[in-house]
Design a protein around this nucleic acid. Structure first.
Lengths: 182, 182
DNA sequence: TAGGTCATGTAATAGGTTACATGATTGC
DNA sequence: GCAATCATGTAACCTATTACATGACCTA
C-alpha cells in the first residue's frame, strides 16, 4: 500500500504523531496524494505491529496524549525496497471525460458550459501550485536545510504544473473544435 | 456513480447485454475509465430496480441466455441531469510521485532507473493511443455513422495524448535536472 | 487438448470517504 | 458563544479488484 510507504517516508525525516503526519501530507504532497486521519491511524498501528515502526506515548496534561512514531531499521529497509521496486502506471479514472465522451447527448452550449467550468477549476489549481504550494515547498527547504531532498520535492510540483497546463491547453483546443464543428 | 452513467450513456446508443457493454468500455473509453464484469452486472441490476433500465431475456440454445438491457425515459433524463451537473476535479493519486518525492532515500542511479522505467511505460501508452486506440475510434465512427458523437469521442483521446506527452516531457526534464544537480 | 469467446454471476478483500465520538484550550 | 487547534480513534459505507464458479462451443 502506497499510503504506508508515504508514512514511512515522512517518518524517515523524523519522529512524528499521526496528527503531524496528516499535516505533512497536506503541506507537501496534497498535490498528488491525500489521506484522512481515519486512514492514517490504523495504518500506523499496523506498521507498528509489523515491526516497521515503534511507538512511544508522550503524556500531556492539558492536551490529549501524543503517540510518537519512529521508523525502525526494518522500516527503512522496506521503504527502500518499495522505492526500488518496479511499478505499473496508475489506472486512469476521469469521470469528467465520461461527460465529454457522451457530450453529444447534450446541446452544444451545455457541453461548452461544462468545459468552461472545468477550465476554471484547472486554472485555480494551477494558480495554487504556482503560488502557495510553491512557497510552502521553498520554505520547507529553507527551514529544514534539506537541499538534496528539495530537488525531488520540487520535481513532483513541476509534474503537477505541467499536467495542469496540459489540461488547460486541451480544454482551449476542445472548446475551439466544438465551437467550429458542432 | 460514474460507472452507472457510463453504462446508461452506451445504452443510449442501443440495447445491449452486460457482456457487450464491457466490450464498449474496453474499445472506447479504456483510455480514461475501466470496469470489470463483476462490477457491471450488479450495477445493471440496480439500474433496472431503479427504473432507469428495462431488461429482456433472450433465450439461446447453444450459448448462455442473454439479458438485453434498454434505457428508459427516466434513464435518459437521469443521464442528462448528470451530464449537466457541475463536477469537481477528480482527486489525484499518483503513487509514482510518492517514489519521486522520497527519491533522495535512494541513490541517484536508482531513482534515474525508476524514471526511465516510467518513461518507457508512458511512451508505450502514448503509442497505443496514437495507433490502435485511434484506429478503433475512427472505425467506430465509420461503422456507426455517428459523426457528431465522434467529435466528442475524439476529444477524449486527444486529452489522453496531451497528458501522456506532458508526462514524457516532465520525465525528460526531471532526468536532466537529477543528472545535473544530484 | 489447451486456450479463447460467449454469458452470467457471487464472495472475499482492499482502499478510501464520511459520519460519529470525545474533550480541553485558544482566539475572534 | 462559536469555531479552530490539538489528538485520538471506530463504524458504516462505497467503489474497485481478484478469485471463484459454471458450461458449451470453436480454433490452433
Amino acid at each position: 500500500m502506497s499510503l504506508k510507504h508515504a508514512l514511512m517516508g515522512f517518518l524517515n525525516y523524523g519522529d512524528m504523531t499521526g496528527y503531524d503526519l496528516k499535516q505533512c501530507f497536506d503541506q507537501s504532497i496534497q498535490h498528488f496524494w491525500n489521506a484522512n486521519l481515519s486512514q492514517i491511524y490504523p495504518a500506523l498501528s499496523q506498521l507498528e505491529e509489523d515491526g516497521l515502526l515503534t511507538m512511544k506515548v508522550e503524556y500531556q496534561e492539558d492536551r490529549p496524549n501524543r503517540k510518537v512514531y519512529k521508523i525502525t531499521d526494518a522500516g527503512r529497509e522496506e521503504l527502500k525496497r518499495w522505492l526500488r521496486e518496479p511499478m505499473d502506471l496508475s489506472p486512469i479514472r476521469l469521470a469528467f471525460l465520461i461527460k465529454v465522451f457522451f457530450g453529444s447527448s447534450l446541446g452544444k452550449e451545455e457541453i461548452l458550459a461544462q468545459l468552461h467550468d472545468n477550465m476554471k477549476l484547472h486554472q485555480e489549481r494551477l494558480a495554487t501550485y504556482m503560488g502557495p504550494v510553491k512557497e510552502v515547498l521553498q520554505q520547507n527547504i529553507e527551514t529544514t536545510g534539506l537541499e538534496r531532498e528539495g530537488l525531488y520535492w520540487g520535481l513532483t510540483l513541476e509534474a503537477g504544473i505541467k499536467t495542469e497546463r496540459a489540461w488547460i491547453e486541451w480544454l482551449e483546443e476542445a472548446i475551439k473544435k466544438i465551437e467550429a464543428r458542432d
